[in-house]
Design a protein around this nucleic acid. Structure first.
Lengths: 194, 194
DNA sequence: GTCTATAGCGCGATAGAC
DNA sequence: GTCTATCGCGCTATAGAC
């Protein structure tokens, strides 16, 4: 494991801070204290704060969708794929007992204090995920594994919003265990068995 | 309609600001600009910002649960009661095209930057709502109106988290119409009909 | 690329006159 | 109860030395 360059360290620390405290709760001072450089030096890598956040969103999106597409391309059964997809969210919430949520869930909550280029990135991430869920739910329904009422698009919307939104609520009340129960309940509803 | 006193005006404006921008996005300066007094004067009514937020949470909780308990005590069928409950969330999201979410959803997202007395109030609100949902879902299940898999407690958790969480996501992508679709989908899942 | 130093701003909060 | 004035703080961001 080779040493990480400063720019990557800044991104890593900033992401952790935003996932816990939000964009407005993250400051260059906070980052510098962890990385071990002066806050002015951060401006060398990311002149404005929005540059840093934009870079974070791009990196997060690419990593996340790469994993999701790997799940979709696997030979697993639809239920297993869906379980693995939900597992990505569970892993974030459980990571390090530090009350982290999905980067895009936190920014969604702060939507009205963000500049519009960031808003567009957020909307794109939501759309990309719902598209993947539509694909996954359609496959499961065609195979007969999934048996839920209503149309696939609406169900995908519900699943994605519930996963992202539940993270924010579970953090305050119930934590990772509550979130896991909700995921299992979602799966039961999707499978449509009493 | 008699004129509203200053203290109530401050509460009203502060609540609107928090529901749109969050606690850290709301400032005494913002409030004073709308109410029409100087920001120093607000400290007469609420010495510290936390005093203002605490008063807001108490007022919101009492109003909200009073309405919910009215719904539960009505003679409506369980499905109608649930529809009316979800309608409270829809009404907030649709109010004034100003992208408002439930006060407690916003504070849940900001959990890690709030003092612990506020955190306790948030947890209590979540618990109170989930208790009411357990009661409502149990009634519907016993009457045979509701036919969902899994236990009632878990389903109540899912419904509450989905409603609160979806608000935050729907604001960025899909808006009030998306939220309405999700509510209808939730109702289909609870009724358990294909 | 990192440092020190500082500018400029908005914030929560307080003092004291009216 | 509201006002003017001000303090002290943390923040984003920039200038210039090394």
């Amino acid at each position: 494991m080779q040493p990480t360059d400063t720019k990557t360290q800044i991104l890593d620390v900033a992401q952790d801070l935003i996932q816990r405290l939000g964009v407005n709760g993250m400051s260059y001072q906070d980052i510098s204290a962890v990385v071990g450089i002066r806050k002015a030096s951060i401006h060398t890598h990311f002149p404005r704060k929005e540059d840093l956040v934009t870079a974070l969103l791009v990196r997060y999106r690419e990593r996340f969708l790469r994993i999701v597409d790997g799940i979709l391309a696997s030979g697993d059964e639809p239920e297993v794929k869906l379980r693995r997809y939900c597992g990505l969210y569970e892993a974030t919430l459980s990571s390090g007992n530090r009350n982290k949520v999905c980067l895009y869930a936190m920014l969604g909550a702060e939507l009205n204090v963000l500049n519009s280029p960031l808003v567009v990135q957020i909307q794109q991430f939501y759309r990309d995920n719902e598209d993947r869920l539509v694909h996954l739910l359609t496959e499961g329904k065609q195979r007969g594994d999934f048996r839920f009422p209503g149309d696939v698009d609406t169900m995908a919307t519900l699943v994605f919003g519930s996963l992202e939104g539940e993270m924010l609520i579970a953090r305050a009340h119930g934590g990772a265990e509550r979130f896991h129960q909700v995921v299992e309940q979602l799966l039961r509803l999707i499978k449509g068995h009493l």
